[in-house]
Design a protein around this nucleic acid. Structure first.
Lengths: 228, 228
DNA sequence: TGCGATTTGTCCGTATGTATT
DNA sequence: TAATACATACGGACAAATCGC
């Protein structure tokens, strides 16, 4: 009843936006695997749109870093590389620490409630063993601090990373789909974020990221070797 | 002879890339002032291209944050707002400190030479009172650390900020075109970057940014009041 | 080296949707 | 309410570039 449905009722009014959203979702959910070549004529027929809006959507996803476009050659879903993961995690650490520094002295009651509510959703998804929802809710949990820090540029930067991060999470999940994230992995995160010790929070962010990184690093380096 | 020409011989092979570059340059050089509405039919005729590539270029510049698109309504050059400037500078501080931390222990001889050469170019531009070149060379100087830190994601993020920063610099310059940057404003920056005290460098970056921010803040808040 | 097939890039004419007046 | 201006979308056509043979 009072639980808001997660569905983002974003009625994208333009076709290009809808196409971009559909393609993005298909990629980050693993339905279109890395290295796949996106052929315009095929896609436009599949999606039921003309090449115009499709090409504009492709341009947007390329700017977001989910696909790579080589002129006169083709557009490909990005590849997995250890270096990219490492960069994603190290950069994430920096900006999330920055976000907490910004939000710390102006944390509102809504911040606390958003945090706990989102933690609840994540816990439920984990308990339900819904791996797709778990990934989404974990990213949503981390989005809370960006949404409340009042720094549009920072939030925008986070959103750009989020898609790629989502893709890596999905691929990792699919590789060994039984080991989801630990049930209590985010307890300390939420507790500290609602506490009064900023330094402890910042330190925890760094640790949390390192743990996440080492979790996927081995898998990715293995994949990279296989493809080599 | 040995001095490489600055001209980026980037023969953009696709029309959309050329159009995007032309539009971007026109905006950051102030030839197309903020709030200007970009009308597709006019632009496509002016540039001598069809609406297809033009629209794709517009989508790219919108993703870069230089223009804003409102569906079925129009595309406008971004507005100037104090909050945006403040965000730009605070975020820049964070990522440039991060970049120096990354590069510190692997600074190569090329890093030092790039740094001093670029400082020389900046100095020459200032002496020549070439305000357009001065802005470009100052941004190039700051680009050195990103180019050498070996973090593609960080460099990519910097490039995204750079266009907006360039625009603000240009507008500030045009507002009172006699006060260019001080001749020795970057001496300490270069000296510290080539030195051995990382903490001093990081501290200087923060100070350097604060100075830059306060320089444009008053001007922008004035403009913002005028337009209100 | 060249040739042909495939795909991307580009142009144009037209029709429709939307906001504004 | 109607009319206008413009963005959006479609479909067909052709040019240009890449790749495999």
């Amino acid at each position: 009843m009072n639980s808001l449905n997660i569905k983002p009722i974003s009625k994208n009014r333009t076709l290009r936006a809808n196409v971009a959203e559909q393609l993005r979702d298909a990629i980050i959910n693993g339905d279109i695997p890395p290295r796949t070549k996106l052929i315009e004529t095929q896609l436009s027929e599949l999606l039921g749109v003309s090449r115009g809006p499709l090409r504009e959507a492709i341009r947007q996803l390329a700017d977001q870093g989910l696909i790579e476009n080589i002129p006169y050659t083709g557009t490909y879903v990005i590849d997995i590389k250890v270096k990219n993961i490492q960069e994603l995690y190290s950069f994430r650490t920096e900006i999330e620490r920055f976000a907490f520094s910004l939000v710390w002295n102006k944390r509102s009651s809504k911040f606390y409630s958003d945090l706990t509510n989102q933690h609840k959703r994540l816990t439920q998804a984990i308990k339900a063993k819904d791996s797709v929802a778990t990934i989404y809710e974990e990213l949503e949990l981390h989005s809370v601090v960006y949404d409340h820090c009042g720094h549009d540029l920072l939030r925008e930067t986070w959103q750009r990373l989020r898609s790629r991060l989502h893709l890596y999470f999905t691929l990792h999940q699919k590789a060994h789909n039984r080991s989801g994230p630990k049930l209590k992995a985010h307890d300390a995160y939420v507790t500290l974020a609602a506490g009064e010790n900023l330094d402890a929070m910042l330190e925890h962010v760094s640790e949390h990221m390192n743990q996440g990184y080492s979790k996927v690093e081995k898998y990715v380096s293995m994949i990279e070797q296989q493809l080599k």
